[in-house]
Structures are given as C-alpha cells and as structure tokens.
C-alpha cells in the first residue's frame, strides 16, 4: 500500500495520546488506591491536556485524508459493520472523556474518577478500533492478524509512557518519573517483541492470490502484457509505495533502532542523571521511529489488486 502521511500522523498521534492517558490515569489511580503518593494535580491536568491536544491533532490529520471532509459526520452512521465508523465515534469520545477527566482533576470534582474510567474505556476501545480497521481486511495478509491490534496498542502505550515520564520529571511528579520510566522501558521492550513477531510472520507469508487465481488462466507461465492503461490510475497510485527494496529495508532498520533501543537508552540515562532534556528527546526520537514504523506498516502490505496492475504497454 502507499503510506498516506495523514493516516501515519493520525495513528501515531492518537496512539501517543492514548498511552499518555493510560500513564496519567494509572499514576492517578495508583495514588488514589494508596500504592504510591498521589501524583499531584498539575501532572494529571497537564497530562490530560497534552493527550487532548495530541488526539485533536490526530483527528485533524484524519480529515486531511478524506476527499470530502465536509461530510465527515456521515462516517458515524455505519458503526454496526464498519471499524472505521466505530473509530470515528470513539475518537471524539476519547477526546471528550479525557477532557472531562482533565477538567475534573483541575476543579477537584467528585466525578473525576468516573471520567477517568470512561476515558480509559474509550482509550482501549480506540486501540481496538484503530487496529481492527487494518486487521479486518483479510486479504491484506500482512495486517490480518491480532498482532496488528496488539502492535498499535503497545506502541501507543510505549510512546505515551515515555512522554509521561518526561512530564513527570519536568517537576510535575518527580517521584513518579522512575516508575513511569520503568513502565515505558518495559512497554517498549514488549512492543519490540510483538513487532519482531509481526516481521517474522510477514516474512513467511505466502500470498494466497496469484495471477492464476486472479485471472482464472491456469497456466503455470502467465504474465501480464498490458494493464489496460498507460498513464497510471488510482489503482497504480493508491496501492503501491513505489520505493525500492533497499529503501524499505532502510526504513525498517530506522524504526527498529529509533523506536526501541535508542529511546530506552535515553530514558535510562535521563532517569539516571535526572535530565528532563534527555527524557523529552527520548520521546521525540521514539515518535520519529514510530512515524517510520507506521510508514513501513503500510508499505509492507501487499494488496492482491496489484496483481492486475503490473505492466504498461
């Protein structure tokens, strides 16, 4: 598939927003339950606010993907069958509940825990919806796996916890930074394991569709001599990334390095030396890595329609 930058931005931004909400709410709940000291109002409010901003930017990016953004509201109608429609409903829900959670924390409202729980529920639902949009397309074999949902969830959480660590160390919840950072490192490690499993799975995939099944011409030697058009079409633009194998491999290694070991090391050193700058940089580097990861995620998916669009003559 051709990676659409709008969707790359959407999925990475809301992923980080969701992870941040989980981190902030988790710290808040741990404090309320008495496992740790309460993280302080500033941390919760700022965290929720940043999550809202990131998710809103993601929502904005998603509009950019639409041909007819002015009709976007219609996308909420088919939630019974369409994961995309479900996402369209849950994303504003996440924004609203996270906003309410932040606002409630700011005012010290009694319903804040309820808002937080709802925000968490929306957050989980959003991870599932976003992942399932891709995982439900059965003939995009690279995506059609529960690993897709797991990967989106873990990467979102990892980046969100990294951001939460930087935020805590910024003076908002100093004594929570170490715990959050440990979580961030653990999540990044788990995410790497899942992503590696995905890469291994995809490397072994054999396309179920062949030129023979696509045309019904059952000759072992079959080749297209003309795709029926010369100047390109939607089908030649939307479904092929048009980059070399070497470029793809480069992006793969870029995200394997930038999204996992480098931010983990920076998190570790940042916590060790109490450097907020290093922690913020860890998030930025990891986010850049996740942009590469999402680009690769799209580019690697091999659409069976490409069998029909091979040769110009």
């Amino acid at each position: 598939m051709k990676p659409a930058f709008s969707v790359i931005l959407l999925t990475t931004l809301i992923g980080a927003a969701q992870g941040l909400l989980v981190a902030v709410y988790g710290a808040d709940v741990a404090g309320r339950l008495g496992f740790t000291d309460a993280p302080g109002r500033g941390f919760v409010v700022t965290g929720a606010a940043i999550a809202v901003v990131l998710a809103a930017l993601g929502l904005l990016a998603s509009f950019w993907h639409l041909g007819r953004p002015e009709r976007a509201w219609r996308a909420a109608t088919m939630w019974r069958t369409s994961w995309l429609s479900r996402e369209v409903i849950v994303l504003p829900g996440f924004l609203a509940t996270t906003f309410a959670y932040g606002a409630g924390s700011l005012w010290g409202a009694a319903w804040t825990p309820l808002a937080g729980a709802l925000a968490l529920a929306c957050c989980v639902a959003l991870f599932v919806c976003t992942g399932m949009i891709y995982a439900c397309l059965r003939f995009l074999q690279e995506w059609a796996s529960p690993l897709t949902v797991l990967n989106f969830t873990l990467l979102g959480c990892a980046s969100g916890f990294t951001l939460a660590t930087a935020l805590a160390a910024f003076g908002l919840a100093d004594d929570h930074a170490a715990a959050l950072g440990t979580w961030a490192i653990g999540l990044a490690a788990t995410a790497l394991a899942v992503r590696a499993a995905m890469l291994a799975r995809n490397a072994r995939l054999r396309p179920r569709s062949t030129l023979q099944s696509a045309t019904g011409v059952r000759h072992p030697r079959l080749a297209q001599t003309s795709q029926g058009l010369m100047g390109g079409s939607f089908n030649t633009r939307e479904f092929m990334h048009g980059r070399s194998r070497a470029f793809l491999r480069g992006i793969k290694w870029a995200f394997l390095v930038l999204a996992f070991p480098v931010p983990v090391l920076m998190l570790f050193l940042g916590l060790l030396y109490g450097s907020v700058l290093l922690l913020v940089a860890a998030f930025i580097v990891q986010y850049a890595g996740l942009l590469c990861e999402r680009w690769f995620f799209f580019a690697q998916a091999n659409h069976p329609q490409n069998l029909y669009y091979q040769v110009i003559s």
Partner: peptide, 13 residues
C-alpha cells in the same frame, strides 16, 4: 466521504 476504505477492501482493484 472519499475515505477510500472500500477500495482497500476490494481485492479486485
């Protein structure tokens, strides 16, 4: 709305 999701979901291009 031109989201192109249906085109992604059609194996036949």
């Amino acid at each position: 709305i031109g989201c192109k999701y249906c085109a992604w979901a059609c194996p036949y291009g």
